[in-house]
Write a protein that binds this DNA or RNA. Structure first.
Lengths: 214, 214
DNA sequence: GATATTAGTTATCCAACGATTACTTAGTCG
DNA sequence: CGACTAAGTAATCGTTGGATAACTAATATC
């Protein structure tokens, strides 16, 4: 692996020095970052605590003991993803109330660099049937909804459009459609229509991530 | 369980008589229907062949032997879901080319009665990282895209809006947001804004499914 | 420098899951 | 009826996965 540093709360991770033995709090951030990537790729059930551990450079039992259960680890990944999403939106809101739609859109796309963050959420969003995860997923989604509605002052139609666009972006990214951009003309066309304005950012991102994967 | 008859390709299932020993082809449909529901609830990795077997009233080894592997079973569920979606759209298209957007929208909502059909797809759509499932998922999504674009004659913007709306609907259903419609005012408000025109159908559906679950 | 605390590991357990094998029984047909 | 085929099960196997326990070593503290 190239690095495990670029994920959830990159800001938390930037200053962490790798060392066989580090502060539990720092290690926690590394594990959460690894977990976010892993859950983003294969979802809650498709991700093993061992994969997370390996990605974080730590033993599997350590991961479990630090978070109690895999479920609690996932819940914390979700919590942080929602918090980060809201923090990014709030920062944008604080910078002015003009053109919020497009600006939030860009901020959302920027979050894709935090590998797995939005995808972990997306996985959670289709797990409504799970008693524990589903409950938290609904609550997280509603937090975002009410932020847009009440804090950002979006009207019903703006919220609807914004959310729908977000879910479509998540889907295209989750599908890894951009992997086929150069080889499959239909995929390229689909991406162009589905992600107007956002395409270049997403493609750039896909390239970076495929490079990382080597 | 109330009945296992209402899912993928209901039309295939309607005429099947339950019997301890039935034609393999009929049993196949029952298993596919059960699998569709199960995969829709918990996704590919979250669903066990045993759960599918139990729901279909058959032994676990039988499910595996009939489809080879769990993966192939899931692929077949996906294939059929896409085929059915396209069939429904084509039927609508054959009935006239006026107001296609709203009419496709209604047809899409109607498909929600086929429990798990759209949700299985949605789970697949965020599994792009999986070499096998991801490949098939992209291909399925692109089939729908190119149908809308080429057969139905949607322009880029119409396709974009339609797909985005579809993904939002999938998300709200996957979240089971309607479970909280009566108890959580915020959830109710969110549903109203996220699913304009479609709300009553979705709520109705949720009620039926919660009733079924008893 | 001894002691206590914190960060981690190795070894192991048990349950669950997908898959395989070998067997049984119900229809079918000459 | 009796042989054959088709539909299904029971038993079991090998892995994997999450969790637990018991141990080890580094760092901080007095």
């Amino acid at each position: 692996m190239t690095d495990n540093l670029s994920s959830v709360n990159e800001h938390h991770l930037q200053h962490i020095v790798h060392h066989p033995r580090m502060k539990a709090e720092d290690r926690r951030e590394l594990i959460l970052a690894a977990a976010t990537k892993a859950f983003g790729d294969y979802g809650y059930f498709g991700t093993t605590t061992d994969k997370v551990a390996k990605a974080a450079g730590v033993s599997q039992p350590y991961v479990v003991r630090m978070f109690g259960t895999k479920e609690q680890l996932f819940l914390e990944v979700m919590r942080r993803a929602v918090d980060r999403l809201l923090a990014v939106f709030r920062a944008e809101l604080a910078a002015g109330t003009h053109d919020l739609g497009p600006r939030f859109g860009r901020a959302y796309i920027d979050l894709l660099t935090d590998r797995g963050l939005l995808l972990s959420l997306m996985h959670a969003f289709v797990l409504g049937s799970d008693p524990v995860v589903g409950r938290e997923a609904r609550s997280g989604f509603l937090e975002v909804y009410s932020f847009l509605r009440d804090e950002a002052g979006f009207d019903a139609d703006e919220v609807h459009t914004f959310l729908a666009n977000g879910m479509l972006i998540n889907t295209m990214v989750g599908l890894r459609m951009s992997d086929e951009f150069e080889t499959n003309p239909l995929a390229a066309e689909c991406l162009i229509t589905a992600l107007p304005e956002k395409l270049d950012r997403v493609l750039e991102l896909g390239r970076v991530q495929r490079a990382e994967a080597r």
